[in-house]
Nucleic acid binder design. Structure first.
Lengths: 255, 255
DNA sequence: AACCAAGTTCCGCAATGCGGAACAAGTTAA
DNA sequence: TTAACTTGTTCCGCATTGCGGAACTTGGTT
């Protein structure tokens, strides 16, 4: 970031650091000490102390009475739900996704692109297994997952082209190989109408994905996934993938 | 805030301003211009420009290509879902709440306290009506709603006492009256085992609430609500309230 | 072409945030 | 009890960082 000394006049460091503190919290962690925050962010403790004081006053952090450790505050939740509220498709997709998860015994997710990642807007875990621990807001790479590849493959060619440099930048030397694999997946998608990843991104996880283009909304994608030991390729291709396509049809009627 | 000139050495203004920009977005609004942000936050436009530049670089804002207006970015979503992940009760309550909403044709919510507000952790709208437009992260006052009063009434006396000054500070001169009404509601709760608000907080909305104390978690409360025109007091008291109590029992087995 | 509205950039100033170090408070060990 | 340690808060002088008015683009309208 120090490269571009020009633009940096515009960059507000204190704000960035404060957000770094918030982002230091990982799902499942209850509370972090000031020191732990300092370690994670690489900031000196007095700086962290000031930032956490400020964030606490604003409700973005909350301090545990006993330990004095910090938790993310509920003000953060309000921001997050404002984001979700702007994607009204969740209202429609949610119930149908739950129905799918129940009937097929699979986890299902809806995601859209952010940079070179896919971000989950909604997920329904299969009731059977605790399955994969991904939730709303989680990120998975676009180029190497079933949902990302389905997203990519279903995009207009012009959009696909625009993504190439972004992905190339992300993967550096590996891009050549990944790019070839992505193109392969694109071909598969055109032929089959869905994309598949059988243990490729996460070993022991099988997934299929379809692109979802709803008129008013940005492009999205759906996937269905589950643990490899409980599934087999045949069922994924012959039962799950078609069911996912059927669901897509209900969300985005053709025409 | 300027009163305490001492502590203010610790307060990081730039961070607070940046968060003010994020908080300027309201649910349902798609994109805001820099100028609109300046108006809402009361900051000069050059300042807003720098802040939104910074937030955009970090992924907390995203810029609409065509209009140049800003939307909340998906990084915000990641923060928000980290908060939700720390309340594991949602995993258990969610399905049961949906079931309730379906069977009773009512909206149902789970909330906990933040300051003198109750904040929704989970809500399920009734499938029938679009009903009340409150979602995860929304706030309603503690002292004047069914859910808030149920929360209060079910608290240990010591905790109730601790809340008094907080509420008094919030309501100022009105506190006398509100306090009396709250005490009345507390008595009702002890007698009936639920609290009720029939058009009191929002005209045309009827609601009942129960306290929910789950061992590992902070105190919470549940409510069921719906439009007044479709409901009547008898049904609320004789059907909905008991059903809510039954649900509470499944979430927090006695003992 | 002239005008207006919105946004970005400039630039000198000083207020603001910085961070090392001293200070407090709480914990463990000896 | 004292001493060493660990964590968190506060101090305080310095210079960096962010500030914001004004000038400058950019783009759309009459």
């Amino acid at each position: 970031m120090d490269l571009e000394t020009d633009k940096d006049r515009l960059f507000v460091t204190a704000l960035a650091r404060g957000l770094e503190v918030l982002a230091a919290f990982r799902p499942g962690e209850l509370a972090l000490s000031n020191q732990e925050l300092a370690k994670r962010t690489g900031l000196p403790k007095s700086t962290v102390s000031r930032l956490s004081y400020t964030l606490t006053r604003l409700g973005y952090l909350a301090q545990d009475e006993a330990s004095g450790h910090y938790r993310l505050g509920l003000a953060v939740l309000a921001l997050g739900s404002t984001v979700l509220a702007s994607y009204d498709i969740r209202q429609i997709a949610g119930p149908l996704m739950r129905e799918f998860a129940l009937e097929q015994g699979m986890s299902i997710s809806l995601a859209l692109r952010d940079g070179s990642d896919m971000v989950y807007l909604e997920t329904c875990r299969s009731p059977a297994r605790i399955s994969v621990q991904l939730t709303v807001g989680s990120r998975v790479p676009l180029a190497t997952t079933a949902i990302g590849r389905a997203y990519y493959a279903g995009l207009p060619a012009a959009e696909q082209l625009k993504l190439q440099p972004l992905l190339a930048a992300r993967y550096g030397a590996e891009w050549e190989e990944i790019s070839a694999r992505l193109e392969e997946a694109r071909q598969d998608y055109l032929r089959q109408g869905y994309s598949a990843s059988f243990g490729e991104y996460e070993a022991d996880v099988m997934a299929v994905g379809v692109h979802l283009a709803v008129p008013g909304q940005p492009a999205m994608a759906l996937n269905a996934s589950g643990p490899a030991f409980a599934l087999n390729e045949g069922a994924m291709r012959e039962r799950i993938a078609p069911a996912l396509q059927a669901l897509r049809l209900r969300l985005a009627p053709p025409g």
